[in-house]
């Protein structure tokens, strides 16, 4: 799919300023930027949650996974009901489909009868991913899906994201402020700054030979253990 000249305005404030970005099929495009850079507004525009001007071609069914898995699942719905929300089938077919979707995100089918409060953060985020997959999306938008998770479960969710691309050929817009995380999962990286994409290209190139000053500043600021 391709995003062309996309602009999002909130009153007089331009959150996203004529962004053009291509998401090749079966690829993960990582979008990195700091708070206020417009990356979440871009995600919401692509998902149809905020009005925008410009064109989005080639993705009719876009689903989104949100940052906070504690707020993105209805506390009054069982896991099975949440995951089945986007599934248009009869009762028995839906049940089988929910089981398949839970399997895709490596959750046991027995979890379908549980409520979100009984799940850990990582499990909830898997449920949210399964719910999005239920609509068979052309594009999955993942907006900071690991930033509310503990480090020890973050790795498992990132592995899941990559395996979904490899096994289902899923196209994804993966948004994060964490450059190391974006580098790990993405095929293409786009750097956003003040509403504009200042640099984009294959991950190794952007990380290895950053062309823009801002990208260099971001790279330098990544905390390192050693």
């Amino acid at each position: 799919m391709i995003i062309e000249d996309l602009t999002v305005r909130f009153g007089a404030f331009t959150a996203v300023d004529r962004v053009t970005l291509e998401i090749p099929p079966g690829r993960i495009v990582g979008l990195v930027g700091e708070s206020g850079s417009g990356k979440s507004s871009l995600a919401r525009a692509v998902s149809g949650l905020v009005p925008y001007t410009g064109r989005i071609d080639g993705a009719r069914n876009v689903q989104m996974v949100f940052q906070d898995p504690y707020a993105s699942l209805d506390p009054r719905m069982t896991v099975g009901e949440s995951v089945g929300e986007g599934v248009r089938r009869d009762r028995a077919g839906r049940r089988a489909e929910v089981e398949r979707l839970l399997g895709l995100v490596s959750l046991p089918a027995g979890l379908a009868g549980r409520y979100p409060r009984e799940l850990s953060g990582g499990q909830r985020q898997r449920v949210a991913i399964a719910r999005a997959l239920g609509a068979a999306p052309d594009l999955l938008v993942a907006d900071e899906i690991t930033s509310a998770l503990d480090v020890s479960v973050q790795g498992a969710v990132l592995n899941l994201v990559r395996s979904l691309r490899d096994e289902l050929g899923l196209s994804m817009l993966f948004i994060s402020h964490n450059l190391a995380v974006v580098r790990y999962v993405s095929d293409v990286v786009a750097v956003m700054h003040q509403g504009r994409v200042v640099e984009s290209g294959p991950t190794e190139r952007v990380v290895g030979e950053p062309a823009h000053d801002y990208t260099r500043a971001l790279l330098e600021a990544v905390p390192r253990l050693t």
Binding site: S152, G155, L158, A180, V181, Y184, V222
Partner: peptide
């Protein structure tokens, strides 16, 4: 050790799955 291994940094091998810790605290 598992915490350090599950944390992707700028040198993590992108072809290998990340380490993760099963279960929860």
């Amino acid at each position: 050790r598992a915490l350090i291994a599950s944390l992707p940094d700028m040198a993590t091998d992108r072809d290998k799955p990340l380490a993760s810790i099963p279960g929860r605290q």
